[in-house]
């Protein structure tokens, strides 16, 4: 497997199938992880992942390279996930004021077992509003930079920071409640 380089991206823009296959191979796992954390359902995630790559391939000649190919794919994947939320009316309404209530939280973060961690985190993520979940997944699960997230989410870096802070506080609260 070679790294995603300029030559490969040029081939991608020309809808070269071999190049596209390498791109699918390189990014499918990482994209799946993001999508799953957004929709929290295996079948939906696989479906969205497939649509993401198909849309990217169709739109490849229009890819300008202003962002990295990966952040471009993430943006498509998140749009697909949002669309799915909207179609199925799976909006998550939440009273954001509760995140200011940070009192008497017991120390419960000693759990080390790998098994159960996913379930705990996913269950907490499920209760987060979509926009909060999005920045948290991109930063803390996938490891994108604030700059990359700001491009994907169409927010200033300051806006991403603020949203991320609130998302982390809320996740902390949810993890405590789920214990």
């Amino acid at each position: 497997m070679r790294l995603i380089d300029k030559e490969l991206i040029e081939k991608f823009k020309n809808q070269d199938k071999e190049a596209f296959s390498e791109i699918v191979e390189e990014y499918s796992e990482r994209l799946y992880n993001i999508i799953y954390k957004m929709v929290l359902n295996r079948d939906d995630s696989l479906d969205i992942l497939q649509n993401t790559f198909l849309k990217a391939f169709k739109a490849a000649p229009r890819f300008k390279g202003e962002s990295s190919l990966y952040t471009y794919l993430v943006a498509i994947a998140l749009n697909e996930a949002r669309e799915r939320f909207r179609k199925e009316k799976r909006f998550l309404f939440f009273d954001l004021d509760i995140i200011d209530e940070e009192k008497n939280i017991p120390d419960i973060y000693e759990e080390k077992e790998k098994e159960g961690v996913r379930e705990r985190v996913n269950s907490a993520l499920k209760k987060l509003p979509e926009s909060f979940r999005e920045v948290l997944v991109l930063k803390d699960v996938d490891g994108l930079s604030l700059k990359e997230i700001s491009e994907i989410a169409n927010l200033s870096e300051g806006g991403v920071k603020t949203r991320l802070y609130r998302a982390r506080m809320l996740l902390k609260r949810m993890l405590n409640e789920g214990k």
Partner: peptide, 21 residues
């Protein structure tokens, strides 16, 4: 919490990846 997030990574099975392609 951040460590939990990193550890909660999801992955595709080999079959799912093959079928996806």
């Amino acid at each position: 919490i951040l460590s939990l997030c990193k550890k909660s990574r999801e992955s595709l099975t080999k079959t799912e990846k093959k079928r996806l392609k």
